[in-house]
Design a protein around this nucleic acid. Structure first.
Lengths: 183, 183
DNA sequence: TGCAATTCGTTGATTATTAAACATATCAAT
DNA sequence: ATTGATATGTTTAATAATCAACGAATTGCA
């Protein structure tokens, strides 16, 4: 973990912050690189030192959110939190970053986020499935996994795009109950 | 007005902001260069590229405030604002930057600020004295000037160190009345 | 369609910042 | 006083960011 030059961190932070702020103003496709540079108070060329284009930039931001969610998930596992309680953490995270997630899901970039999110869920939930259980005797593990994960993603997407109609905890509990029935 | 490199502006802004923030935490003399560098998220050496030491840094911050006040004063003169109205602007400025002015006046650096402030007042008020007036027939211009300016500084210092006991407008009006009687 | 104006992505030369190291100075506690 | 620790101010080579310029691609509009 050779620590990176302070200038790199600062530039990237400013650039990412700028994009997120601009996304709540206008459609992502209408944002120019110059807009981002202006808002970040950074030379336009500097953006190209770190990202291929604005799509690559958005991808990297999404990737960081996914990683953040993974970290939360794994630290919840270490602290032996039950499934519902760890879900609450996630939904609170979505709530904190609402303006980002809602605009991403509303834009044409929704699918790239959704697929990455789905991958994460599959990774993290694979071990939670107990195929020895009686109710799962006749079911294929992959089927159960796919069933749960897609519904999870669907609920999250619905909750965010509808403007978070219930508090994080309420949604997390209800989703937890439904998932528990399936595994 | 050859525009300066963006990096210079950003570094100096970060450094000055850091000092001001730190000054509300602890005594200026207890603040180390490293403290400032950490808070500004800047290399320690960078500070020495722009300032001789932390005293020079504080001096420059004070100087910028003085210049800001001068600009306000002169633009008020251009807009033909009366004396009281232009004072209101100043006191509102003190109010906006309260945390800075109060800590500076409380510290050992008070005198350097006070003397610069006094110089500014003398410059700007010299032209306002009308020695042809009857009541000023037997008075020396410099005496009137000194009288008004020191009382002005005194009021400002009292108002700030007492925690701004009255709104800016109230103070500005009262001070305006008193000064008007003298010139 | 055609023209003008942006925007893009890249380039090269220059500059500001960085990390690390250094000797010196200040300071506290023993 | 002596020591250990921390702060200062300076130097070095390496490097990230800057600005200005460029042709090419896109867009917007007449």
């Amino acid at each position: 973990m050779s620590k990176v030059d302070r200038r790199i961190t600062k530039s990237q932070e400013a650039i990412k912050k700028a994009v997120i702020e601009l996304m709540s103003d206008k459609n992502f496709d209408d944002i120019t690189i110059q807009d981002i540079a202006d808002r970040a108070n950074v030379n336009r060329g500097t953006i190209y030192l770190h990202y291929l284009d604005k799509f690559d930039l958005l991808d990297k931001i999404i990737e960081e959110h996914i990683n953040e969610l993974r970290v939360m998930c794994e630290s919840a596992a270490e602290m032996d939190l039950d499934f519902i309680e760890s879900n609450v953490g996630w939904f609170e995270y979505f709530e904190r970053n609402y303006s980002f997630f809602s605009t991403v899901l509303a834009s044409s970039k929704a699918s790239s986020f959704r697929s990455r999110f789905q991958e994460l869920l599959i990774e993290e939930m694979r071990n939670d499935i107990d195929t020895t259980k009686v109710i799962n005797r006749e079911l294929n593990e992959e089927v159960i996994l796919q069933f749960i994960v897609t519904s999870f993603v669907g609920i999250v997407e619905w909750w965010i795009t509808k403007g978070m109609p219930y508090p994080p905890r309420v949604i997390a509990v209800q989703l937890g109950i439904l998932i528990d029935r399936s595994l």
